[in-house]
Design a binder for these strands. Structure first.
Lengths: 120, 120
DNA sequence: TAATCATATGAACAAATGCTCATATGATTA
DNA sequence: TAATCATATGAGCATTTGTTCATATGATTA
């Protein structure tokens, strides 16, 4: 019924026991999808800079654009990506929209990431 | 001398004090580059699956290919990406190459990531 | 030594991504 | 009410990315 066989592997399984056990321990597809979207959103240098900036202070779109020396449009597009994965939230005051980090997970992730890249 | 001005921002700075302070608190370009490479490497679903699998057990290339139902070539290409950011290390035994996680940072990052996506 | 096996890698190509440009929207100000 | 400002967004385009295919390498086995 459920066709879980490997359709394209062009080499023999060497350790069938390990493969079968690990297969049962893999996360669900939906979790993997969400995780990859989250990590994709923090893998771009522009978005990384935005997140670092917001971890220091609430900021509006114009300020971020000025800080990074980029166009308002580019920043606005990237903020939408960060909103979609709920890394930032926004709050409108008149014409100005203020962005802040949505929660603290991203700071924890940055810390682990920086620890990792520091090891060389 | 040092041209730090924003060349492309098409809107006025609204909070100059905040922008100037945060500018001094931003990480160095090299750190940002390394971080983005690291996060890029965990943003692809295939590589995420490989890392989850290796967090459960040491595995050879054929086993991973079988587990994920993908070609040996595709897996091999992706393992190179993970090697380049030192997320996995490998060890050769005869013809077979065994891959393992290089350190525990990736598990910590996954935990924070899963915590984040679970909040909805 | 020849055949086979596990893995690595370069080229090619389709799909995804990030920016720019033009323009839309919704709020303030003259 | 008209002009202006802060922000958002769609289309277009160049670049990057992930896979396949063909082939190379280095080790084992017949």
């Amino acid at each position: 019924m459920n066709n879980n066989e490997a359709p394209k592997c062009d080499c023999a399984v060497i350790h069938e026991d390990v493969v079968n056990r690990v297969k049962g321990e893999m996360p669900e597809e939906e979790q993997l999808y969400d995780l990859s979207e989250l990590f994709k959103s923090i893998s771009d240098q522009t978005r990384l800079k935005i997140l670092f900036a917001l971890s220091k202070n609430e900021m509006c779109v114009c300020d971020i654009a000025a800080l990074l020396g980029m166009s308002q449009s580019a920043i606005s597009h990237q903020l939408r990506v960060l909103r979609n994965v709920r890394l930032v939230k926004h709050q409108k005051e008149g014409k100005v929209v203020y962005y802040t980090l949505d929660d603290d997970h991203v700071n924890a992730i940055f810390k682990q990431g920086l620890d990792h890249v520091a090891h060389r």
